[in-house]
Simulated scan of single mutants.
Amino acid sequence: IEGDEVIIHLTNLERAEDETHGFALYGQNVNLSLEPGKTATTRFIADKAGVYPYYCTEFCSALHLEMEGYLLVKPEDYEEECPKTNPDCNIIIEDKYTQADYDKQVKVNLETQAVIDSVVAFITGHNYKDFPPVVALVEDAVDQLGFAKEAKAKAEAAVAKEDWQNATLWANQWWQYQVKTADIGLRAKTYLEEHGARAN
C-alpha cells in the first residue's frame, strides 16, 4: 500500500564464482549486485502508487531475460473489490492451458533433457574434477537439476488431477531449471575443451 515501508531480502543461491546476479527496481532507486552465496537487504518507502518493474542487471545465464517481475503499490485508499470477509464474492479464473499445451511443453522438456544428458556424458567422460571452476559449475548444475525434478513432480501431480493449468505452469518451471542446467553444463564443457581436459 502507498506509504508502506518495503523490505526486500535477496540471496544469490548460485555456487559458481561467475554467477553474479543484479537486482534493480525502477523508480525506487534500488540497484544491487550480489556475488554467489551473498545476501543483501534493501528498504524504501513506497511513496507513490503504481507498477514498478524489477529485473536482473547482470547477464547470468540463458534465462537472464526472464528474471523480471513487477512490484504493485496500491493507492492508500485502495479497497479490495472482493474482500475475503465476503463469502459470496468469488473470483473465477478460467483455465488458460489445456492438455495439448502441457504435451507441447513436455516435448520441449524431453528435448532439453537430451542436451543435458549429452553434456553430462562429455563432462563425466573427462577429468573434470581436476578443474576447480568446473567442479563448482557441476555442483551448481546438480542443484538446478534437483529443482527441475521437484517442478516435474509437481507437474505430474497436477496431471493426475487433470489440472492442465497448473500442470503446464509447473512443466514450464521444470523446463526453466533445465535450461539453467544446460547453460551451466555447456559452460563447463567449453572450459574443459579450452583447457586441455583429457578423456577418462
Rank of each mutant, 00 (worst) to 15 (best):
Y191R: 00
V135Q: 06
E94N: 08
N127S: 10
N200Y: 08
Q28I: 04
A182Y: 12
K180R: 09
D77W: 08
P83H: 10
K189Y: 01
D88W: 09
P87F: 02
D130K: 12
Q28N: 11
F122M: 04
T168G: 06
L71H: 09
Q176N: 03
F147A: 12
H21W: 15
Y191M: 00
N31M: 05
E156Y: 05
E58F: 02
V179T: 09
Y54R: 03
E35S: 13
G50Q: 10
F44R: 10
K189C: 00
E81K: 04
A46I: 15
F59K: 05
F59S: 05
A46M: 14
E80T: 12
N172I: 08
I116L: 03
V106F: 05
Y52L: 01
T20W: 12
E81G: 07
F59T: 15
T190E: 11
A160G: 09
V115W: 06
E94Q: 10
V138M: 00
C56W: 11
K189Q: 02
G185V: 02
Y52T: 02
H126P: 00
K189S: 03
V120C: 04
D101I: 03
W170H: 07
A199Q: 13
Y70G: 02
A151H: 11
L169S: 13
E58I: 07
A155V: 07
G22N: 05
W175H: 15
T39E: 13
G37W: 03
T57A: 08
A114L: 09
K180F: 06
K38F: 04
N166G: 00
I45W: 13
Q99P: 01
K74V: 03
L10H: 12
K84N: 05
V6E: 00
A199E: 15
A121F: 12
G37T: 01
D140V: 04
V51T: 10
E81D: 08
A155I: 03
P132W: 06
L72A: 08
N172W: 11
A155S: 15
P36T: 09
E139G: 04
D4G: 07
E150V: 14
A188N: 13
E2L: 08
D183Y: 14
T42Y: 13
T20G: 02
F23S: 14
V138D: 01
E194N: 13
D4R: 10
G185F: 12
E14N: 11
A121R: 11
A148H: 08
A158H: 08
A167W: 04
H126T: 02
K107N: 05
F122H: 07
H64C: 15
A197F: 03
D140Y: 09
A100Q: 15
A153W: 09
T190Y: 05
D140C: 11
V120A: 07
A62K: 06
N172M: 08
K74G: 00
G146I: 14
K161N: 01
Q165S: 04
A171Y: 00
R43M: 12
Q144F: 00
L34F: 09
P36Y: 07
Q144A: 05
G50Y: 07
I91K: 12
E80L: 09
I92Y: 12
G3L: 08
V73E: 01
E14K: 04
A171F: 00
H21Y: 15
D130Q: 13
Y54L: 08
L110I: 03
K96I: 15
S118Y: 04
E194K: 13
E150L: 14
L34V: 12
R43N: 14
D4E: 13
